[in-house]
Design a protein around this nucleic acid. Structure first.
Length: 208
DNA sequence: ATCCCGAGGG
DNA sequence: CCCTCTGGAT
């Protein structure tokens, strides 16, 4: 809707969170992909704790594809949804080996076809892993964008479309991280800290 | 719409 | 106890 307002909001958030960026630890696109799959409904700290042990033993598609399911489950237990995630990581590793020569594909269309990889994860791998245009909409991005009136969306994919339509591609990755930082620190799901919000005067939720 | 599902916070 | 955390598949 209002591109100018959105730009201004991003500028203010950039000043408030100058170091916004991913907190997931990884050393390759494949490790990032695994970390992102593990991050569903889990905190980044839980994921980093698990991947520290996992990647020290297995850090390639080959290592994970041939790992027995039970062992992989044991290694990633500690994040929620671990049975599904173990299955997806093993399956996507096999596909990377068979179809992509053990590499992580560089297009959104290919990434989203991988098991356990939806729009959010594919967008994050694009932006964070390859520096290509991608704007992942997670729970924070969805909540904050709607509260601020950047979009009026019930579904995350609607939020993604709305944000992409009013933010320059070059700024998608940055916007993703800024909205997450703000969602974590101030515009929290449970008890938002509106009195500390640099956007308080511009926010529709602020009905003083 | 429902299921998966550990850990931390209030 | 209930809610939330960088969701995705069925």
């Amino acid at each position: 809707m209002n591109r100018k307002r959105t730009q201004k909001i991003l500028d203010i958030l950039q000043d408030a969170y100058p170091q916004a960026g991913t907190r997931l630890n990884f050393q390759s696109p494949f490790q990032l992909l695994v970390a992102v799959v593990l991050s569903a409904q889990s905190t980044d700290e839980q994921v980093n704790q698990v991947t520290k042990r996992l990647f020290s033993q297995y850090s390639t598609p080959q290592g994970m594809a041939y790992l027995p399911m039970e062992e992989l489950q044991e290694l990633i237990k500690g994040v929620g949804l671990f049975r599904n995630k173990a299955r997806h990581i093993k399956a996507l590793s096999e596909i990377l080996i068979e179809k992509y020569g053990g590499e992580v594909p560089h297009t959104f269309e290919e990434l989203i076809e991988l098991p356990g990889v939806g729009r959010k994860s594919a967008n994050v791998v694009m932006a964070v892993g390859f520096g290509l245009p991608g704007l992942g909409v997670d729970t924070h991005v969805h909540r904050v964008s709607n509260r601020l009136g950047l979009v009026d969306a019930k579904q995350p994919h609607q939020t993604e479309a709305g944000l992409k339509a009013q933010i320059p591609r070059q700024r998608w990755g940055q916007a993703h991280h800024l909205l997450i930082s703000h969602g974590r620190a101030v515009c929290k799901a449970r008890s938002p800290q509106c009195s500390f919000c640099p956007l308080e005067s511009m926010c529709p939720k602020n009905i003083d």
